[in-house]
Design a protein around this nucleic acid. Structure first.
Lengths: 220, 220, 220, 220
DNA sequence: AATGAATGAGTATTCATTCAT
DNA sequence: TATGAATGAATACTCATTCAT
């Protein structure tokens, strides 16, 4: 699995770091945070255990770097939706997220879940919370842009709306974590999103006249 | 040489087990499941490590017993709402849940989150999933009872509705897990519940006279 | 397996001891000396662990008592051959021994082997050696009696001859210990014994028609 | 706080392994196989417990490596007798064996006995039996060579003869195991060997005129 | 910069023994 | 006399980290 090209010597530090971070993500996704031992990381990255400590001060630093990489990925996803209306962007993000959840390793979501799951014990709590906050803020900005551009009802509380959006993503994550994929597979998640976006939409206020959630069975 | 003070003797096995389970819950809540080491459990329960194995065959059994205790507590909460209408019961449960989240150790919810979070790594997967299922089924029954008694719209998909209720509870849990108590504190969670219940309420309900989600700002 | 008759109370000490010793032998035969834990002995004897210490000062004492019981059994076997000529007695003993080796648990030989095998670590070394010596002396006496009664050549060194007899028994034990039953099954052992007895027989013995091993006295 | 003197560093793995194997042999010889705990091995080899696991996957691997070393030694002894007639070789081997038994730790024979003695309990059964077999086969080959070269009576069953030779060695081992060195010290063992070789010898066929052990093929 | 042997504190579990009941 | 809950030291093994090479 490791790169190991010809006795693995003398790589530019930046590349080495990236290589290691990649390995950390893989190991965390498959073994969880507590199972991401230094020796597994070394094996996965094709680098000796000692060399790991040339590039990172501690195992915790490696994990934090991996967490950062996850955020980068998430930010990239969010940014990749630029140029559309806010509801379209949110929809794009949610669909991409759902799709990731169903893939083998769940893309960046799999290690991310593990980081959340790692809980208080690993000294990562703050780093995890901060990553969450940054992601939240990026999505909050989309909502606020939507209100500014008139595609999202301006009378809604932006933070609350973002939270509700975020909730859907999180319930997908948690469901997957618990092995209860029913939530995603049976469309509960997609349905909740659809409802949310319909309620939040500003312009063609047609559907706001009638009592909402009539034709569909459930409710958001 | 040893401390030897108060040689913790001869408790009826049932009491000792309860004492240990209590300690497991405390340790899991503060250190997470992987961090709930046998030595920490021993220290927290004021019993020697060896004594733990008089009452439990393995650490895993201790954890499972704690998980059972959590379910019991949860079941007690759900059952304590009996004798009311389904919407009232769900509301009661959610309010109690929110209140627990804000307490020091989050009552049974804190260790519960950690159990979910522990993920597949710790041989507890099945036990955790089963506990989830049992809790879900109990709430599903409330919803179905509500449909039977006419307090919940019968045209809604009961599982989906229960999922949506469950989602709210879960988002509280996850928020707490991530250290983002804002979701609960700012009432997002309570608001989502309110909306959900309003939408799900049977047509003759008094509170359905006004067009819903009008006066309130956000949406579910 | 344990007797356990009706809450196992108040047995005459001697019987209790015998019951426990029996259990020790069974456990040693099946689990070896290091595997003969106090809890296994308690389970096998149908007595609580604590009660074991009422009758024995320590696990080591239990093992020594078992070793004594083995010697008793062996002595009984040797004595049971009384009333015959020395060669007949030796033959009787050896046959009985071979037969025991082939039975499921090897009678007293199985635990005996385990005691030998236990090695120096269990503080039983001296007790084991003493038991061996006592058994050796009993057989030496048979040989000397044979010389006195004229059924064994008086010019042979009695100790050496006894050793050679003992050797055959021991090689059976060791073969069994190593899982190499070939030695017994293929009759090597019986053959060696036959030879030994023929060589040792006094001149007037019927089977001494040919002049065996002329110049040397005995045979291995 | 710790001793820390001479932080035992950086030995080529092969040397360290040899050092550890050496220590295992010493510990096994003095404490038996079950008594050869990892901590004793660490202490005897002057290496930390952790370091042991750098070179061996488990305690069992350490024991197997020690067993291999014993076989090597034994093979070396057997091979060192090459270039002589078969009886001379067997005599050489037996004498060397007897000499070893009298030395402080019995050379490789002391731990070997312990390995045999360890019995089935310790998961070494197959490894021990295989070692036995290999050693037996090497000696069987000597006997067969002797028959081919005319120094051993060709009418004897080679396996039986080898068994009888092996028996002598084994009785030395067991005697030593039981602390009954008389067998060796008083020359019983040497005498048995002398007899065996005389009976098996082919050349000065003087004693072959009479029909010793007529009907059966082998000899005692 | 890279290696991997070495460490020591930590892991879950076992067990002979003690002693309040 | 008998029980079995409790102990604490010992068991094999793991792992983040250090450091001589």
């Amino acid at each position: 699995m490791a790169t190991h090209t010809a006795r693995n010597r003398r790589l530019p530090p930046e590349e080495r770091r990236a290589q290691i971070v990649e390995a950390v993500l893989k190991v965390v996704a498959t073994h969880g945070v507590p199972g991401a031992t230094v020796s597994k990381i070394a094996a996965a990255s094709g680098v000796s255990e000692g060399a790991l400590y040339v590039h990172f001060a501690s195992r915790e630093e490696m994990l934090k770097a991996a967490l950062d990489a996850i955020f980068e990925e998430m930010a990239r996803l969010i940014d990749s939706s630029a140029g559309r209306t806010a509801p379209e962007r949110l929809s794009h993000i949610a669909q991409h997220h759902s799709r990731l959840m169903k893939t083998q390793l769940g893309g960046f979501t799999a290690p991310w879940i593990e980081f959340i799951a790692a809980g208080p014990q690993v000294g990562l709590r703050d780093a995890v919370a901060e990553t969450q906050s940054k992601a939240f803020e990026k999505m909050l900005k989309i909502v606020r842009d939507g209100q500014a551009e008139g595609t999202i009802r301006p009378d809604l509380d932006a933070r609350r709306l973002t939270w509700q959006f975020y909730t859907i993503l999180w319930t997908e994550n948690v469901s997957s974590l618990m092995g209860l994929v029913e939530y995603i597979d049976e469309g509960h998640s997609a349905y909740s999103l659809e409802l949310l976006l319909r309620e939040a939409g500003a312009d063609d206020a047609a559907f706001l006249s009638a009592t909402p959630a009539r034709q569909g069975p459930a409710v958001g």
